[in-house]
Amino acid sequence: MANPHKSNDEFFTQLASLIEHTQKKGHGAIHLSQKRLTYKTDAAPTPEKIANNPEWDLNIADPLPLLVRATDGKSQSQDRKKNPNKNKLSTIVQPDDIEAFYARYAEVCKAGMQSLKKRDRSKRNKKKKKTPGTVEEKKA
């Protein structure tokens, strides 16, 4: 494989730098995806298995790992040229690690995604503006 899966730690450091890079550039997009990993595992469906039981995946005894991917853009431009500058990362999350992984995932995303609206900024400003005004009026 040209682009093997990263370890979870490596994934987070690279994801943080990926988000930071986009943030510095001032525009762009980060795409994150997560899905069940069935490829090349014991639970991978054979065509027969699906034909015999279309709902084979509803009751699986053993938990499966997740595949989490991150990229910083589209793989093709509008005129169907391949985007050479695309960075992509992927990692496999084992079922036992899901909680720890998502706790860190949330931290990395919270730290990186700084262009979203900050909490209650407008309300605080209004309050600040109001309070000095009232104090001055009282003084006057």
């Binding site: 899905k35 998502y102 949330a106 995303c109």
Partner: peptide
């Protein structure tokens, strides 16, 4: 952000069976 991503973790549990 934080709330949604912990939500993704919860959904991840369904994915992992």
């Amino acid at each position: 952000v934080g709330r949604l991503i912990t939500g993704l973790g919860r959904l991840g549990r369904y994915m992992a069976a």
